[in-house]
Computed example of a mutant assay.
Amino acid sequence: MLDLFKKYRTLLLLCAFVLSALLFYSTHLRTQERTTLFEKMVLVFTGPLQQGMDGLVTTVADTWSRYLWLVRTEEENRELLQENRRLKAALDQLEEVRLSNERLRTLLNFREDIQLPALPARVIGEDASGWFRTVVIDRGSADGVTEGLAVVVPEGAVGRIIAVAPGYARVLLVTDPSSAVAALVQRSRTRGVARGRGDSLSFEYALRDQDVVIGDRIISSGMGGLFPKGIVLGTVTQVAREGYRMFQEVEIAPFVDFDQLEEVLILLKEDA
């Protein structure tokens, strides 16, 4: 212990002197009325140091507060972002419900307009092979569905049932090349057959001198027992009377958007 004191004697004495001076200064400061030269020197030397220390402490405190504020802000932003996503998903679901209700309301109104027994169904699949134009619906023989029934939407004709299972049925679209519907021109009453062409239809067996023009609406004639009379098939987009052919070539754009089918009506037999 004595060796340690001898080794740091000068430093210890200096610290003791400074401490004693500060204690004396502090005690004397409470009782004196005037500032001494020594006190002035102390203020001169310690003032900048205290100012610097105060500034450093303030800066550190501000930095720490700003860091804590940024952390809280980031957490709040993350929570707000998650809440925004939840609300957006809820709004999307509500919008889908609203659109579905609108389609079903339109379908039910159309059902009342045609005054025929009809069964609503949802489209749950479509042919993926590319060989046929068909869709699958969620109604089958258990619901009274049989082969040959017509399928429609408010925009017009969809197709006919060609295969039935207890809970499902397959519908051949009117645009399939193997589909044919007895039809007529609504304006001029010219008769013919609307046949599928993949994405469109053709109006066949209309004599070259019969009245068919671009923009005419083609509807089902009611003959053949498939569709009732007046179901819209499409609009004439092209008419050609070439050479000495007996029949004119007429192309029809279907009213129904078959890529957007979601709900349909199956037209039941009168005694069903």
Rank of each mutant, 00 (worst) to 15 (best):
D209H: 13
A183E: 11
S141Q: 09
R66I: 11
R187S: 07
R245P: 01
H28A: 04
D113Y: 14
E79M: 01
F110R: 10
S220P: 00
L19A: 13
T106Y: 05
Y25D: 04
T31P: 01
I124T: 12
P166C: 08
T59H: 14
Y244C: 01
V123R: 00
N109S: 11
G156Q: 00
A194D: 04
G130N: 04
P177V: 14
K269S: 08
L29V: 06
P48L: 05
N101L: 04
L91S: 02
A157S: 12
L80D: 01
R98H: 03
V153G: 12
G215Y: 02
E76K: 06
D143Q: 10
A253V: 10
C15M: 14
T190W: 08
R191K: 11
D199V: 08
L11W: 14
P120K: 08
L184N: 12
M1L: 11
T190Q: 07
A118K: 06
V123H: 00
A253C: 04
Y244M: 07
T175K: 07
D143H: 14
F17C: 13
A194P: 01
W69T: 12
G196I: 08
F255H: 11
T27W: 08
V193S: 05
Q210D: 08
A142V: 12
T73H: 04
D54S: 10
L22W: 11
L56H: 12
R72M: 04
K88C: 00
L81C: 01
E147H: 11
L81N: 05
V213P: 01
D143F: 14
R139M: 06
G52E: 08
F203R: 08
V174E: 07
T63G: 08
Q32W: 10
N101Q: 06
D127E: 14
N77S: 01
V44C: 04
A16C: 13
T134V: 06
D62F: 15
P117F: 10
D216Q: 02
T36Y: 02
T237N: 06
R245C: 01
D62Y: 15
I214N: 01
R133V: 04
E96K: 02
L22T: 10
V57F: 15
Y244S: 07
L172W: 10
P48G: 06
R160K: 15
T35C: 03
L207G: 05
E155L: 07
S200L: 06
F5W: 15
A182W: 15
A206S: 11
P154Q: 00
K6V: 13
D127Y: 14
A121I: 09
G243D: 10
L173S: 13
D211E: 11
I231C: 07
E147Y: 13
A128Q: 13
N109A: 11
T146M: 06
P154H: 00
V181W: 14
E39G: 13
A182Q: 15
G130M: 05
G148E: 02
S200D: 10
R139G: 02
K269D: 12
D127S: 09
T190N: 05
G230C: 03
N84E: 07
A206W: 07
G222T: 11
D138A: 05
G198W: 14
D143S: 10
D216C: 03
I124Q: 02
L268W: 11
E95T: 04
L23I: 04
S200N: 08
Q260R: 12
T73M: 03
R133G: 04
L201V: 05
I252T: 03
